[in-house]
Amino acid sequence: MSLTIIKPGLSDTIQDTGRFGQAHLGINAGGAMDPYAAGVANMLAGNNQCEAVLEIHFPGPQILFEQNALISITGGDFTPMLNDEPLPLWRPVVVRKNTVLHFNKLQDGARCYLAIHGGFCVKPWLGSYSTNLKAGAGGHQGRRLEKGDELTFRENTVYFAGLLKEGRELQVLNWRVNIRRVYEDPHEICFTPGNEFKELCPNSQEALLENNFIIHPYSDRMGYRLKGAVLKRKEENEMVSSGVNFGTMQLLPDGQLIILMADHQTTGGYPRIGHVITAHLPKLAQLRPGDNIQFRCVDQQTAEDLLYSQQQELVILQRACHDHLNELVC
């Protein structure tokens, strides 16, 4: 009832929807960079959205399934293969014991998620399974996965074996998700103005909306550094630190922007030009260094409406996945 890492990837960590209620102690929420993909992976595998998943970056790991399992891979397309057979993304898939999952080629996106039916057997830390690398806590021993690590499944998934046809290593189950709306216009990132947006010079406000910004190679789970038009404030006064969030766009002293991502610090002292809307964090998380961003400014109402419809669809999807799976095993 487990899987084993034969060869680790660039950065494979256990994540979930995040660790909340600790930010006032300097402990950030963390969690999946693309919470939508992580949530859908769980649903397809028959879990609730909050279960622990494996977040994978390219080059990906090689994973040996020691047991038949119902899995799902979502998010970036790294051409997942089970032994020699391509494994489709965004689908529930039953995989046979003693097969190896590996990732061939980076096609699209920046990170993908592997969910297992029943979830991984990891101990929560402060109410979350997410790995906090800085604290060395949460997830699997507070660190990235290494060669030989064994992740146990919480549930015995042996009963899916009956769905595997003889001589086949995998069986794709017949339901799917329509994710087009969430990731369409991948480079258009909407934000709501931050407290210091109005402090920008008028021509810098225009420059922010009219120019493309490129994601700098020095970008990771903590933040995306951008390269683009130099933005200036009317007055260069120092600020006192305040709380920040996943998606906060800060202006660095050199006039460039940084967007805080899942592993951001809890507080920051740079001007807050804007906040990427929560509904656009999934597509932002799938952009890579070298990719372009075009910013668009929206109001609160628009931001909330977009998130609401995205989340509503997830509620429906959760129910549908649950029903499909029940029909299958009953």
Binding site: F20, H24, A29, S241, S242, G243, V244, T266, Q301
Partner: peptide
């Protein structure tokens, strides 16, 4: 989700979907 007090500010982080679903405010 989080309350972050700092020198001269208080930051409140919340889940807009949950709030909207449970409290159905008239405003945003």
């Amino acid at each position: 989700k989080n309350i972050i007090p700092a020198y001269s500010s208080l930051t409140v982080i919340y889940d807009p979907f949950l709030v909207k679903t449970l409290y159905q405010p008239d405003s945003t």
